[in-house]
Amino acid sequence: METVRKWVQVIIGFLTNSSWSFPFTKTIYQGPLKVICSPGLNCYSCPAATTSCPLGSIQQLLGGLRFSLENGQHYFGLSVFGTIGVLGGLFGRMICGWACPFGFIQELLHKIPSRKFGIPRMLSYGKYFFLLVFVIVLPLVLVDEFGTGNPWFCKFVCPAGTLEAGLPMIFLQPNLRNTLGLLFLNKFVLMILILGWAVFASRPFCRTICPLGAFYALFSKVRLIKLHLDEAKCTNCKACHHVCPMGVKFNESPDDPECITCLACMNKACKFDAISLEIGGIPLAVPDRGLTPASKP
């Protein structure tokens, strides 16, 4: 199943970045597919991106809200919130585990042999701060003389934008190098720190900073597809704790907002079939190895 997940990550990463004419055009894809939001974090200024980033779109729409209202338009970001809300209701953070290119990059970096460290649980609340403040409040509230707000998260934080768009665009359009300054230096250093952190800790950006992950996490209890814990079969052996890339203690918190439904606990750890994938409460078939509470060690 892990191989299937990797292939899904590769295919979705390719589908959301399938415009490979940029070495010749020297710019980004400008076709109609960009009206579609990518499910994961994927900068729409990436030269290969064929879809738009939901976070970038929300910030741009909220930043331009006053201007649009003055012109009789009502761009509250509902189409984008609606898109990622439907995805959240269906899959929740399964999107992070299966369909986010930046999550996939972090997973690859974490495979580099090194000493591995955990991430304090308290830091996971940081991503809700970034969602509320950097994605919603600041673009709405801090506006210039024309009533336009900035995409604060993209501008000051997002390492995916620097990696997937900033660096490639500097190489493609040499005149952009004249605009490099403190802003880029800040984002470049942040990107290096986050990518470096990903070598030593599993998915640090997803767990502590990503506002899109925070939004999908809000659906942890109500999403259609999620993992289910059969308490009658669970022995509390804690094997699931050791394989989770997000630091979830599944037997203690089956609806944990951090769970990305990578299925590692179900397939690699649990020997008692206590964990199964369910759709709307209906469990999918799981192999029954004949272990029952009476025969547990």
Partner: peptide, 26 residues
């Protein structure tokens, strides 16, 4: 509702341009 208000056209308008501030260049 978002589609009915014409938001996708605005999203597309933004997404087809290189957002310099988004990528830390402007």
């Amino acid at each position: 509702i978002g589609v009915a208000t014409g938001e996708p056209a605005r999203v597309l308008e933004q997404a087809v341009q290189v957002c310099l501030s988004c990528i830390g260049l402007g």
